[in-house]
Structure formats: C-alpha cells, structure tokens
Write a protein that binds this DNA or RNA. Structure first.
Length: 486
RNA sequence: GACCCCGUCGUCUAGCCUGGCCCAGGACGCGACCCUUUCAAGGUCGAGACCGCGGGUUCAAAUCCCGCCGGGGUCACCA
C-alpha cells in the first residue's frame, strides 16, 4: 500500500461512552496500528444543544484508559467540527457554484405535509426536487441541497460486507446546509474525511444507508473515495439493541465494576472479529493480527459471562504490583469506607501479596476487594453453615491446642505453618482439613478463602492468634465444652 | 411499509471466497471426574449445531444458485 493508512474514530459527545463506540474505536485503532498508519480522533459536536464538554473529556478519558492512543486529535485544535465551520461553508459554496448543489426554500412544514401525504398513500417519502431547477436567489431564506444522480445505481464496495448496491432513485436530494447556515452530519463527515485524508472509513453498520448519499457527495466534490468497512452491531441477549435494561452498557460502568482495560479490549475485539481459535489477545497482539477480512458480518450478542472469564484471565496474568495499584480504589467501598480510604489501608508491598493470593479467584477487582476484606479486619460474624459443620464438641479443644502451638511458633511463613499443621494433625490423629477449616473460619469467618497458611502468614502471628482466641470464645459461648478435655 | 444488511452448538466464533480433509473444530457457560487444607485455578472427559427453512446445481454442499422465513438497521433542516 503506497499511501499511509489514515483512519478515524468520530464520536459525538452527546452521552456516555457506549461499548459499541468503544469497539468501533478499537477496530479503527487496531487497523491503524496493524498498518503502521495514523489513528485520528475527531469530535462530532455539530449538535450543539446535546454536545457537552464533559462528554468530550469523558471520551478522552475512556480512550486513554482503554489504551487506544490517537495520533491526531484533541487536545490539538481543528478536530472538533464546531471549529471547522468555515471549511464546510467553503465546500458548500463550491458545490453551489459548480451547480452540484442548489438552494431550497421549501419549509420544514411543507416537507412534513408532503411526508404525511406520502405516508397516507403508503409510499416512501422522497424530496420531490421542487427547488432543484428553481434558481432560488440567495436573498431568500434557504437550505442547501445536493443534486443526487438520477437513475442508475450507487455501489458500495465494503471491505466487510462486499458489494452493496443501491438504486439512485431511492435516494433523494439531501440537505447539506440548513437554513440557519449550519452543516448537516452527512456533509460534515464527507468534508472532514476528505480534508483529513481518511483512507478507510470503519464505522458501525447503522451508517451503511448513509454511504450512497456520501458517495454522491464525494463525487460532486470531485474527491477520491475512501474504502468503507461497516462493522456489525453489538446486540443485547434478546438480539435487540443494548440498553441499560440489560445491565452495564458504558465503558465507565465496566471500569467501575473492576474489569481491567485490556480485558475489555480483548473481549470487545472477539465480538465480531477472530483470529483462528485464539481467545486471549494483548493490545499489541491485536494490532499485530487485526484484519478487516476476519471481521464477521453478523451482529454479536454481548455475553457478560464470557467477559468475566476474559477478565479473570487478565487478572491472573497481571503482575501483583499492578493489581495492588488498580485494586486500591476498590478497597474502601468493599469495606464500607469512603473510596479514598483504601489507599491508607496498606502499603503497596503487602497489598501486592494480598492481590497475589486472590488473583485466580477474582473475576473483577470488585470481587477481589470483597475477598480482601479478611486481610483488613476480623470476621464480623461466622458463616452459619460453616460453624454448623465444623464447630463440633471437639472444636474448643482443638482451638486451644492451635493457639498454644501458634504461640510457640517462630517462623510464620506459609510453608512453616503448613509444617506445623501437618505435624499437629498427625499427632492428633486428624486430617489436615479438620484443623485447617477451623483456622479458616477463625481467620475469615468462612469456609472458602485463599490458602489458610497464606492468609495466616499475611495476617501475622499476633493477629492470627487474636482471631483464633476470638473464635475459641465464640465456640464456647455457642457450645459449652463437654466435660474435661483430652 | 420501502430500502439495505445479516442468519453455523444457549452465547462468541473457525470453516464458506478457492465444493470433498466437516455425519462441523475452538472458546464461554453447563455436567462429571482428577488434583487438593477450603474456594478457586489447573487437568481430563461429556452433553450441546440435522450448518434458519425449502428447492435446485454436482459423483459430492455448511460451502455455488434460487425462493421463503426470521432478526436487525435506515428512512429528519438528529448524529
């Protein structure tokens, strides 16, 4: 390919950042990186009433969080449509001067009436071209319309869908510039893509029907067309549109749920794209393998379960130090404290060790933080099924022995502790599990936790013994010892 | 309604272009077993798709052709 690949992601800042948008951004990014091209971020904020600066900031934040770095775009100027009105105006004038566009004085009311009439006759409405040859003078209020070709067909050679054909007679003279002088979306897109020298337009399937209109605009302007690639939509489990009703839909929500960015990127990539039987891809591998030819045509249902699996895979693969860092903000909330409180709770090294003990049993950082609670405070209560099963008549005696042995235990690392327990179990004629579960309940309040010896080591000798004593007191309260021990 | 797109296990998908290696492979989820101080993780095995339906073409079709049905998208002086 002689020319450098230039692609863009062009969100409109009118709402929160949807995962569908994230995937479109991702495919563009991966395509650009794969071809050593340029990834451009452009803000489509022509809709001034709905566009807000907060949404723009949000878009930049999310893209950075996802690791989808752009080569051109904000904060540099010139990448927001509101900054580019002069360019659109000039192109509109040129089309008018070339006779490729014309002034139209039909009012929205007139058009609505025509639309209703067409609907009553069960016909599809198309602008009848009333002003096409009317030579409406500039002095009159007017919109600018593009002269669409009459008869024939417009063919879209889509990199994903193949050849898509539209009859020109189903297309009408659409509005380039409104009566108030503002350019319409379809016009801006064409002008922007052309002036930014976009080579491949990779966008959602919902834009396919805009494509023939835009192609006519490229032709009228005398510009070369980019290649188009329309990617399939992301669907809800009922195969409809994804909405809040189905749970999380925005990138921020997944971030708040404790999904790692590379996990979300990985999952989104596999929604509609594949590389053989491979499932796990780092962003770098994505860039390496991504091709439009391997993007599917059918819509893909968003499956939260699989996302969680991918998330677990990335948590398992993450370095403990990194986990400690990203886990910190989740700690406070998990302990019922303000989110800022988490940072003061532990030093990074200890938190890294904690994260390491939790990584293969946490699908999200939220789950990890919840499971980490036992490292920061004694159990608030003992799980009822657990005590029912393990706090038998012999429990007080065993706790007493455990406390005594822990007191005389010097080395408090997992291996030494395991040795202590194994020796003790043999001595008492018990299975390791009989002792281990008692300690686990004392330490965590539950029957499920990371390996107990690891938990005890992380807690330290003093805290471990304190919790064993608390548990002993609790068993005795619940079930007074039966006669003399031994 | 018109136009456009899509249709392989519940879900994501490989295979389709260049028919036979596919009575369809992988992954998630599900079930069983193994491992094991618990839960996970890991390992092994299993259930699960008449390749939307119906016709063709062909010695041979998930793969090519036609029709149908189903789903989705778009039909603004919104983006």
């Amino acid at each position: 390919m002689a020319d450098t690949v230039r692609v863009r992601f062009a969100p409109s800042p009118t709402g929160s950042f949807h995962v569908g948008g994230a995937r479109t951004a991702l495919f563009n990014w991966a395509f650009a990186r794969h071809h050593k091209g340029v990834f451009i971020l452009r803000i489509e904020d022509t809709d001034r009433s709905r566009s807000t600066d907060e949404h723009i900031v949000q878009i930049l934040d999310v893209l950075r969080w996802l690791g989808l770095d752009w080569d051109e775009g904000p904060p540099a100027s010139g990448y927001r449509q509101t900054e580019r009105f002069e360019i659109y105006r000039a192109h509109g004038e040129r089309l008018l001067a070339d006779g490729r566009a014309y002034r139209c004085r039909c009012t929205p009311e007139t058009l609505d009436a025509l639309r209703d009439a067409a609907k009553a006759r069960k016909e599809q409405f198309r602008y009848p071209g009333t002003c096409r040859e009317a030579g409406v003078p500039a002095s009159e209020p007017h919109a600018l319309r593009l002269k669409m070709p009459v008869g024939g067909q417009t063919v879209v050679e889509d990199a994903i869908l193949g050849t898509v054909t539209f009859d020109n007679d189903t297309l009408d003279d659409w509005i380039l510039v409104r009566t108030d002088g503002t350019p319409t979306y379809n016009f801006c897109v064409v002008v922007d893509d052309v002036t930014m020298k976009i080579t491949h337009v990779i966008r959602g399937n919902d834009h396919l029907n805009n494509t023939p209109k835009q192609i006519a605009c490229y032709a009228a302007l005398g510009y070369e067309m980019p290649l188009f690639a329309h990617i399939p939509m992301i669907l809800a489990p009922d195969r409809g549109k994804m909405s809040k009703r189905h749970g999380a839909t925005t990138v921020e929500e997944f971030r708040d749920q404790g999904i790692l960015p590379e996990a979300l990127v990985n999952y989104l990539a596999r929604l509609g794209w594949s590389h053989g039987d491979d499932e796990i891809f780092s962003p770098k591998e994505l860039a390496e393998h991504f091709t439009l030819a391997q993007v599917g045509k059918a819509g893909a249902v968003f499956d939260r379960e699989k996302l969680l699996w991918v998330s677990l895979e990335w948590i398992k693969a993450a370095a403990p130090e990194r986990l400690a860092e990203v886990l910190t903000p989740f700690l406070g909330p998990a302990l019922g404290l303000p989110s800022a409180a988490g940072a003061a709770l532990v030093d990074p090294a200890r938190l890294a060790a904690i994260a390491a003990s939790l990584k293969e049993r946490s699908r999200t950082l939220v789950e990890m933080a919840e499971q980490a609670a036992c490292y920061f405070r004694p159990p608030a209560a003992y799980d009822a099924p657990a005590t029912a099963k393990f706090w038998g008549p012999e429990a007080p005696h065993r706790y007493a022995v455990l406390i005594k042995r822990h007191l005389s235990q010097e080395a408090f690392d997992p291996e030494s502790l395991e040795g202590l327990y194994r020796g003790l179990a043999a001595e008492m004629g018990l299975k390791l599990v009989d002792l281990a579960q008692l300690t686990r309940i004392a330490l965590t309040g539950k029957t499920a936790s990371p390996p107990v010896f690891q938990v005890a080591a992380l807690l330290g000798k003093a805290e471990t013994i304190a919790r064993l004593k608390t548990a002993l007191a609790a068993v005795e309260r619940a079930k007074p010892p039966l006669g003399p021990k031994q």
